[in-house]
Write a protein that binds this DNA or RNA. Sequence first.
DNA 1: TCAAAGTTAGACCAATCAGTCTATTTAGAG
DNA 2: CTCTAAATAGACTGATTGGTCTAACTTTGA
Lengths: 189, 189
Amino acid sequence: MTQPTREKILDVVFKLVYINGYNGTSMAMILKECGIPKGSLYHYFKSKKEMVLAVVSERINPRMDEFYQLNVEESQEGIDTLLAAILKVSKKELLVSYGCPLNRLNQEMSPVDSDFEKAINSIYNRLRDKITLLLENSQLKLDVDKESLSEFIIASVWGSISLSPTQSTTGRYIQTISHLINYLKSLKV
Amino acid sequence: MTQPTREKILDVVFKLVYINGYNGTSMAMILKECGIPKGSLYHYFKSKKEMVLAVVSERINPRMDEFYQLNVEESQEGIDTLLAAILKVSKKELLVSYGCPLNRLNQEMSPVDSDFEKAINSIYNRLRDKITLLLENSQLKLDVDKESLSEFIIASVWGSISLSPTQSTTGRYIQTISHLINYLKSLKV
DNA sequence: TCAAAGTTAGACCAATCAGTCTATTTAGAG
DNA sequence: CTCTAAATAGACTGATTGGTCTAACTTTGA
């Protein structure tokens, strides 16, 4: 069973836009990579923008949890789930090399298009809230503000994997992010 | 005395590329914003790429120190200079709203063009080394690795100001980055 | 079996892209 | 003033952009 056309398009567009950016990816590149004619593509999506917004909601959004391995395990405290997730990022080669796809698209599109801004922000907020929940489900020092800590965690992980796309390696990421790990551990009671 | 044409071009290109990105900024936009004819622009720069690379070395590079207010003051310890600099970032509105110009260009261009990658990396390395130097000139706990700590500092600052271009505010940045401040303070002897 | 709907196919379009070219104006040196 | 080089001016080009349109093929349900 071959993959339905629409799904294949979303996969290809996700990959190309992730690496080349929105403006760096042309419809011609997408058609070539998909191996489909133009008519098919515009049958499923009425414009480039609508197509990439579909990638945001149907590819990036549902995979954020998977990317960051934030599946809550009942057996451990929230903060330990989080610590494990931060380390597991190093296992995702694409993520370490190219940075977070949501963050990349955010930087390129949010300043110039409010539809992208809204779509991206809602995913970001969902991720932040999920992390906040994990933190609230942990024994931390009382004066720790969970929401800003969530933001700090996301910021430093995204920052670490975006420092240098080509120089980035698993080892380097682990070294850099070890400081976040240290800090988080120091917040435990 | 009006600003020389070449300098004006660099200023305009810096601003437009900072906000719209490389591929999001057309030569036509640049000409219009500068109010000059095409002949002038191509008299000073032989291509768009060379022009933006000139912006990297003649605008972004010399202003990195200024951006991050990393001017060493003899009177205080390195880490205190650093702590002050991290807070002073909040005073730079553009920086807090749109993120670091070097980081933005890095994410867009480094994966697809090695000339940009090299130019950006060398600036990044210079910044990291400067911060490392400040750290080495500080009384920190002995087991702290200064180089990875520099990377972590840059990563979390860049990450914090890139989280949400339009939602970003001074106050939010300070809240997020307070965790970095806490961590750094905890490393002092 | 046949018509309708869904899908594929790609020629075609106006607008825009980065870049070239020649002509003209301006500025400085002698 | 005169000559030369620098700078300005913008028409023009071929390639590429996102997007449209009609025709044909395939699938589906009656």
